[in-house]
């Protein structure tokens, strides 16, 4: 699978989720922040996107903290996303 296909698959998994909140946040993140991530952060984001919404949402809204430092960096960026 080439880069375009991988990115499209990731886009699908970011924007067809269980909760509207996560569709909006992850979609916005993919467009604006994802292209600026380093490879480790990009992998961490892919792993976050694989999580279920009710696991991911507490990390994003700050009611739970990440144990992995790279993942924590990406979650911090995700928390800063403003959907407009």
């Amino acid at each position: 699978m080439g880069d375009r296909e991988k990115l499209n698959r990731l886009r699908w998994r970011c924007t067809r989720r269980a909760m509207l909140e996560m569709d909006l946040l992850l979609g916005e993140f993919l467009d604006r922040i994802f292209p600026t991530l380093n490879p480790e952060q990009a992998d961490a984001f892919v792993n976050l996107a694989d999580m279920e919404d009710l696991e991911l949402w507490p990390l994003v809204n700050g009611s739970r903290e990440c144990s992995d430092p790279v993942q924590a960096e990406v979650v911090a960026l995700l928390r800063d996303v403003r959907v407009k």
């Binding site: 998994r13 067809r16 989720r17 269980a18 909760m19 509207l20 279920e52 919404d53 009710l54």
Partner: peptide, 12 residues
């Protein structure tokens, strides 16, 4: 399914 089953909107 368009998505993995436990990602369906029933979650909401």
């Amino acid at each position: 399914s368009k998505v993995f089953p436990t990602r369906s909107h029933t979650v909401a």
